Amino acid sequence: MNPRVNGIGGMSRKSPRYLDVASKIQDEIDILGPNALLPMEKQFGHRFGVSRVTVRTALDLLERSGSVTRYRGRGTVVSPPKIMRRFSPLYSFERDMTEQGIAFETRVLGFKPEITPPENIRINLILPADSVVGAISLVRVVNYQIVSYERRHYPPKIAARIDPALLEHQDASTVVSKIGGGPIDEVEWVSEIIASSKEVAAALEVAQRTLVFANTYTWRLKGGAPVESGTISYRIDRCRFKHEARFNQPNI
């Protein structure tokens, strides 16, 4: 039997060249610091004895993993480390970054005081059919890179009083709590990895249908009144996620 052929389906045991090249480039990345400029594709090709197509495929793989960022007209640079987003216990983005000592920026992209909400948002906010909600869209920026896109929805009484500009300088949960008349007491959320929509992709500056980590959430005041519901979409090439919980096992 040919030693390079796997017995299952006749597949070669030898990994594709672009994976070998990606591994070698990753070794260089591990030595270099963030924002270091990498050699051009042609230079890598000469060094490793492969075509530019193979190098480009390797760099595409490294870009999807978050190791590098490619800029038109500038080249390929080493990406900053991924941020750690903590979910247990649940922290607001603002508090999470502040406690970790990570500088960030919030950019409000738009505010619509009255829109027809998606059906799941209407249900989460316990609103009757044909209701309208307020909607704010914003992005979070760390190390000059967009890491998440948020689409926040508010029931009419909250939407009528919220000032979108405050979200660029204050914790969103604090802003909503003041308007709602009490602290956020309960949070419900569902996490999933999904293909980005056209809207999400444009905000995150990725190709449409790029996979993102999406959290659909609802904030409630003490007593159960919902004051906000929305979806936060994270770039998985720029974020990691940490969950902590006590293991609950029945006595044996």
Results as ranks from 00 to 15, higher is better:
Arg246Phe: 06
Ala172Lys: 11
Lys198Met: 14
Asn215Cys: 01
Leu211Ser: 13
Lys157Gly: 10
Ser67Gly: 04
Lys222Met: 07
Ser233Ile: 02
Arg72Pro: 03
Ile236Gly: 12
Met84Leu: 13
Ile146Val: 15
Pro226Gln: 04
Lys42Gly: 05
Gln145Lys: 13
Ile184Phe: 03
Pro226Trp: 04
Ser196Glu: 03
Ile31Arg: 14
Arg209Met: 09
Ser148Phe: 08
Ser23Pro: 11
Glu168Asp: 04
Arg74Glu: 12
Ala245His: 06
Ile193Tyr: 15
Arg240Thr: 12
Ala245Ile: 04
Val190Asn: 13
Asn215Glu: 11
Ser131Ile: 02
Asn215Phe: 01
Pro81His: 01
Asn120Met: 05
Met11Gln: 12
Arg70Phe: 04
Ile115Met: 13
Ile232Cys: 13
Glu105Asp: 13
Thr174Glu: 13
Arg122Phe: 00
Gly33Thr: 05
Leu90Arg: 09
Val176Arg: 08
Pro34Leu: 01
Gly66Ile: 03
Arg95Ile: 11
Ile146Arg: 15
Val78Cys: 01
Arg17Glu: 14
Ile102Pro: 01
Asn248Cys: 07
Ala159Tyr: 07
Lys198Tyr: 13
Arg70Leu: 02
Ile31Asn: 12
Arg85Pro: 00
Asn124Ile: 00
Ile236Met: 15
Asp27Ser: 13
Gln145Glu: 15
Pro3Cys: 01
Ser65Phe: 12
Lys24Ser: 13
Arg122Tyr: 00
Arg151Ala: 11
Pro156Ser: 08
Glu41Gly: 10
Gly75Ser: 02
Phe104Ile: 04
Ala135Tyr: 14
Ser177Gly: 11
Val5Gln: 15
Ile115Ala: 10
Asn6Cys: 14
Asp130Asn: 09
Glu105Asn: 13
Ala225Asp: 15
His169Thr: 08
Pro226Asn: 05
Thr57Pro: 09
Tyr234Glu: 10
Ile121Thr: 00
Ala58Ser: 12
Glu41Ile: 11
Val176Trp: 08
Glu119Asn: 08
Val200Asp: 05
Pro118Met: 00
Pro16Ser: 05
Arg72Thr: 09
Pro16Thr: 06
Ser197Glu: 05
Ile184Cys: 02
Tyr18Met: 09
Glu63Gly: 11
Glu168Tyr: 03
Ser173Leu: 12
Ser51Arg: 06
Gly101Arg: 04
Phe93Thr: 14
Cys239Trp: 07
Val68Pro: 10
Ala160Met: 09
Tyr154Arg: 06
Lys14Tyr: 07
Gly134Phe: 09
Pro226Arg: 03
Thr76Gly: 03
Ser191Arg: 14
Gln100Leu: 02
Gln249Gly: 07
Val55Gln: 06
Val68Leu: 07
Glu168Met: 07
Val147Ile: 15
Arg240Gly: 12
Arg235Ala: 15
Leu127Arg: 03
Leu37Arg: 13
Leu32Phe: 01
Gly134Glu: 09
Ile252Pro: 14
Thr231Asn: 06
Leu125Glu: 02
Asn2Thr: 09
Thr69Pro: 04
Ser88Thr: 03
Pro164Gly: 03
Thr210Gln: 12
Ala172Cys: 10
Thr210His: 10
Arg246Ile: 07
Arg4Pro: 05
Gly75Glu: 03
Ser15His: 08
Arg209Ile: 02
Ile102Met: 03
Pro117Met: 00
Val53Leu: 12
Arg70Asn: 01
Val147Thr: 14
Pro39Cys: 00
Thr76Glu: 03
Leu59Gly: 08
Phe87Asn: 09
Val187Gly: 04
Lys157Met: 13
Thr76Arg: 02
Val142Ala: 06
Arg13Lys: 10
Ile193Trp: 13
Asn35Ala: 07
Asn120Thr: 01
Glu192Ile: 02
Ser51Lys: 02
